[in-house]
Amino acid sequence: MAEEEQQEALLKKHYYENCPGCKVKKIKESQTGLPIRELTWISTVVICATLPISSLFPFLYFMIRDFHIAEREDDIGYYAGYLGCSFMFGRALTSVFWGIVADRYGRKPVIIMGTISVVIFNTLFGLSVNFWMAIAMRFLLGSLNGILGPIKAYACEMFREEYQALGISTVVTAWGIGLIIGPALGGYLAQPAEKFPSIFSKESVFGRFPYFLPCLAISLFALVVSVVASFWLPETLHMHHVSSELDESCEDAETAPLESGVKCKTQKVGGKASKKSLVCNWPLMSSIIPYCVFSLHEVAYVEIFSLWAVSPRQYGGLSFTTEDVGTVLSISGAGLLVFQMWLYPYLDGLLGPVVVARVGGVLGKYASNWVEQ
């Protein structure tokens, strides 16, 4: 009993009244059952970050064509590649920066900033009048949208330990939902004056800017998400300094026998704690490198397939419409969603995550070769 009282008293000293992370920690301890509301919040934020990425590809070819920057029709893919990669190029340059900001100032400011950037720059992208304006808007959208990294840390901090795996799985599932909704919005809402002449006239803003409607729909959704995040999304980062009294208590706990079960971790501000270089951390890098390769395959498939599908048959394409491309990409996203929700948990429990990743890499390689043939 004395050990339990000492442990409980020590743990209570970790809570600070004005610390948002401590408040969330207290709430987690009192939670019972599946955290449906928190899962919904995280899913909505991830979908908001995914929609601008995937909605572009069904109409990318036609947008470049309407800019009249390509001298020949078979040069459209060359310029489409620059426009398609501008978003990811901006993300690659600033992702580490937004991670540092999230660790220092909180996850919530990064999430709100990312959703506001979608509202502003995705809307301006739909109103682009030339190729260079579109490039600039997509680059700024990618540079200022640093949601996907901090939201994974947020998912771990928001849930109890038994639900943390579910939180990470929710992020991937919401990504799959975004890959379903995004291409559908881009495919069915682009060029509305041509598809729905009885509703949208060619003289209206949607007739003069044929790719504005899907961007506007996504921006309005992001506006709602930013309002929800501003008022109802709690901060999970611990913002307090460790007192000397707590340091001494933790040192006593660390010298106590392991059977007591007391664990304490302190972070001394301004100390010279040795940190192993991330580049030399091989377990970490061995996870990041395959993730980069799989991400390359995913994005390359979406962009290359979209350009190939809408290209004229005389150039080896399929002459698909924006609706056709949106339908195919939505089906692909639905496949990812089904696998992530039902098949992956079973395979992960049966084979383990490493074996599943290896099998997925091999199958992806053979599938790519089959498509090329």
Rank of each mutant, 00 (worst) to 15 (best):
L246W: 13
L258W: 08
K275D: 07
A253K: 01
H238Q: 15
E251H: 11
E248F: 06
K195D: 06
F159G: 02
A193Y: 07
S226C: 12
C264L: 10
P210F: 04
L223C: 07
G271R: 06
E162I: 04
T173Y: 07
T173N: 10
A174Y: 05
E259W: 10
G186D: 09
H240Y: 06
E157L: 09
L166C: 07
P192F: 09
A217K: 00
M158W: 01
E194N: 06
T255A: 15
E235D: 01
A253G: 10
S243F: 14
V262C: 08
G261D: 08
G270C: 07
P192V: 08
I218P: 03
I181K: 03
S243Q: 12
C215K: 00
L185Q: 06
F221K: 00
I168S: 06
K268T: 11
E161P: 01
H238R: 15
V228T: 03
H240T: 03
T255M: 15
F209E: 09
S274G: 04
H241N: 14
A273K: 07
T236F: 03
Q191A: 13
T236V: 05
S226G: 05
H240W: 00
Y211D: 05
C280R: 10
C264W: 04
L278G: 12
Q267D: 07
M158L: 08
E254A: 15
L166M: 13
V269S: 03
K275Q: 09
S226K: 04
F206D: 03
H238C: 14
V224C: 12
P197W: 11
W232L: 04
V172W: 00
V242P: 01
F221R: 00
A229H: 03
P234C: 01
K272C: 03
R160G: 14
G176I: 03
H241E: 14
T255D: 15
W175E: 06
A222I: 02
G167S: 13
P183D: 05
G167P: 07
F231S: 00
P210W: 02
W175T: 08
A229D: 04
R208F: 04
V224S: 05
P183F: 04
G270T: 06
S230E: 01
V227L: 10
G167K: 02
A217C: 13
P197G: 13
E254V: 10
I218L: 05
Q267V: 13
L213A: 02
P197K: 14
V225Y: 01
E259D: 12
E194T: 06
S243D: 14
S169T: 05
G271H: 11
L179V: 08
G187W: 05
F159H: 14
E254Q: 12
T266W: 06
P214V: 09
A253P: 03
K265V: 15
A193P: 02
Q164T: 14
G176Y: 04
V227K: 01
W232N: 04
I199W: 07
S201R: 09
L233K: 01
G182W: 03
S204L: 06
I177F: 13
K272M: 00
S230Y: 08
E161T: 10
